[in-house]
């Protein structure tokens, strides 16, 4: 599909069976990207929703889900962490699916499992750190999970779809940009830096995660990165460039410049 013809109010196919079903609003700095995998084999269909969004996003995302699949086929929801912009709509999705006799498993890390139930979620949990960091679908398709602690949550992780070599990267590789483009352009690196420099805790954490992703890139290949915010990074060369970018940026430096110290020091002096 030509970029200029893209209509963001519909689901957009980004690979044979992967769809962008995100929320788009003009003039917003941080939009949420939700994704859908529709895995078909013989007579079975299994749909996996990835970070399906907030309550305000829900009508738009539901419309896009229905463009691509039937609700009864939703079997898993991957929640990369517990933030409301990715999780808050889950009870609404559950209500629709359970009302027609379906059932869902919530795929997440045990750290997020402490918090996600506070949204009123009722599905069974599939805790990746107790399941060998992988999920195997009925078709045999395998999703691998990579732990990215403290980026930006202690239990943060990303998902690698072995079949399509797609990395669903949660907040990693996300960007802040008022000019939304589904695919990263020449200035997206600045948008990525803008997001990571102040949002991620420390460059040591970032480097630790990037070194793992680089190993996966070299061994298996990563064809695209689908972040939760910002633009999709498409193509292996570009993916490599962005891994290098995040290996080498500075972040977590609020400790160096924070003017609350002024009143703390003043009060200590008396």
């Amino acid at each position: 599909m030509k970029l200029r013809n893209m209509k963001y109010d519909n689901a957009i196919k980004i690979d044979k069976d992967i769809y962008w079903i995100g929320w788009y609003k003009k003039e917003a700095p941080l939009r949420s990207n939700a994704y859908l995998i529709k895995d078909e084999s013989n007579d079975t269909v299994e749909v996996i929703l990835i970070d399906p969004g907030s309550v305000p996003d829900f009508p738009v995302i539901l419309k896009k889900i229905l463009q691509v699949c039937e609700l009864k086929d939703i079997k898993y929801i991957i929640l990369h962490h517990q933030d409301p912009d990715i999780c808050a709509s889950v009870p609404k999705i559950e209500e629709l699916v359970y009302n027609i006799g379906g059932s869902i498993k919530i795929v997440t890390h045990s750290r997020a499992w402490f918090l996600i139930p506070f949204y009123g979620v009722r599905s069974e949990f599939y805790l990746i750190d107790f399941k060998g960091w992988k999920l195997e679908l009925k078709s045999g398709r395998v999703l691998r999970f990579i732990f990215t602690p403290y980026l930006h949550f202690p239990g943060a992780f990303v998902t690698y779809d072995v079949k399509t070599k797609t990395l669903f990267s949660s907040d990693l590789f996300g960007g802040i940009s008022y000019e939304f483009k589904l695919y990263a352009d020449e200035w997206y690196k600045e948008a990525v830096k803008a997001f990571h420099e102040h949002y991620m805790s420390h460059e040591d954490h970032l480097r630790f995660a990037m070194e793992k992703l680089e190993k996966i890139y070299k061994k298996y290949g990563i064809k695209r990165i689908c972040p939760q915010h910002g633009s999709i990074i498409e193509g292996e060369n570009k993916v490599y460039e962005y891994i290098q970018l995040l290996k080498n940026i500075t972040c977590g430096k609020y400790t160096s410049v924070t003017d609350d110290l002024k009143w703390i020091e003043r009060d200590i002096r008396g």
């Binding site: 700095p29 802040i176 830096k193 803008a194 420099e197 102040h198 940026i249 500075t250 972040c251 430096k253 160096s256 410049v257």
Partner: peptide, 17 residues
């Protein structure tokens, strides 16, 4: 305010580099 946050962190990175 977004401009303030994103450019100041860019400046911190630049000065440290």
């Amino acid at each position: 305010v977004v401009a303030r946050i994103t450019t100041k962190t860019a400046l911190i990175s630049y000065f440290l580099k």
